[in-house]
Design a protein around this nucleic acid. Sequence first.
DNA 1: TCCTCGAAAACAGTATACTATTATGTGTCA
DNA 2: TGACACATAATAGTATACTGTTTTCGAGGA
Lengths: 240, 240
Amino acid sequence: MTAPDFERIRPIETANRGQSLRRQIYQDLREKLRHGEIGVDEKLVDVDIAKAAGVSRMPVREALLQLTIEGHLVGTTRGFALPNLTDEDVANIFEVRKLLEPRAVANATYDLDDAGLQRLRAAVELTREAVAKGDSEALSEANIMFRETWIAALRNRRLAATILRFADQAHVVRRDTLGKPDTQQVVLDGMTSLLDAFERRDAMAAHDRMVAFVHEAETSYFGGHYAAKQDKQPGDPSDE
Amino acid sequence: MTAPDFERIRPIETANRGQSLRRQIYQDLREKLRHGEIGVDEKLVDVDIAKAAGVSRMPVREALLQLTIEGHLVGTTRGFALPNLTDEDVANIFEVRKLLEPRAVANATYDLDDAGLQRLRAAVELTREAVAKGDSEALSEANIMFRETWIAALRNRRLAATILRFADQAHVVRRDTLGKPDTQQVVLDGMTSLLDAFERRDAMAAHDRMVAFVHEAETSYFGGHYAAKQDKQPGDPSDE
DNA sequence: TCCTCGAAAACAGTATACTATTATGTGTCA
DNA sequence: TGACACATAATAGTATACTGTTTTCGAGGA
């Protein structure tokens, strides 16, 4: 186990905007998870995070529990950590994404406003630059920016929250696939064609291109990937 | 506000099977919610439930938070309560259900074993009797039994958990629709045709019949239902 | 009667302290 | 050297106590 990097947990400023400590800790950790700042061999312990943030255990514990309920962490007897997803887990996540994201992106072509469209263009531009440089870090960031933008536009907030949950759970997929140059080009092409559909507000085109996009991500992941199966994780607590 | 009926919160037996108190409280409340035993005007307060169960506030509080994160409750400044779903909320829930359930039930035709099939038959039989007597209470129970059975069979546990979450959130739908005799017959017909698809292990038939089934539930709800829109609820905490 | 203000109650949120469990290391014996 | 028992530490889980905020309710005045 790598020692957690407490430097990265920022202390809670006293002049918080009325938000609960739990929520602040939650959002901080959620952001770190989304950007891959938590290593797979890192363990998250409430007392350590609490000390770094200058608060007590309880709000931290509740934030960690929330992340566990949402599937972003698993709780063990010795701290919380990233789930060790088996191939079956990843396949299950992809199955749900394939059901939700095509329809959602089609809806988003109606729901997105001009500012959002502008952000999508910027994200694609950043992606183009990242691919040109082979910078998988920047590619990942641009990828997240693109996804967050169209999902944020969705009027159906339940659908949006569910998609974000599942898409972020597949962090191993991003880590394992965004490094390869050929995959990078596929990602760029996919985002470009999605942007085109958004520009034309063509819902069905967006739908079909998202079907292809998610499918390519899945085959890319399972393509050169025949690692030994890990042991099954303890189940999601919400799954009684 | 109706005074909560503490009689219904059963004390935690000392010889529990190693499960955490949080989980026991959670499952108890989850079951009550699923079977409609919590009234819309009832407020759930941690100290009260804790006193009834003979435990401290914390495990109860964490169970209530989990139910809130999952969308089954909303937290207010004065206790937790059922969410007051607007028509838009219900429409959003139906949109997600329409995306997930047809595919899921198709998968279930493969995943279900003989014992499960037997339970489906029993549920349909109970439904038939309930409709004959016009007993909407028994109809609701049979309905839940049917749904729980095929969902429990799903190999994709993430998909199963997500469907259960959304289906159970629509408790207002059940309450508002299962009373009408014509709706009761529609429910019975839908379950019968789904059972038929399961008997023949016909995945596509199950898919198409679930499409029709969910669609009928939606139109039935919005049919005679033009109540005034309620105020918007505070958002789901998981929705940053 | 109705409105305003203030006090008190009810509740969520947070802090601290205690307990139970489990992994880990350490020593002893075969 | 290896296996097994035992002690120790690390950490989740639970209990209790404190704090801050919002609602409720009642008193006093217009």
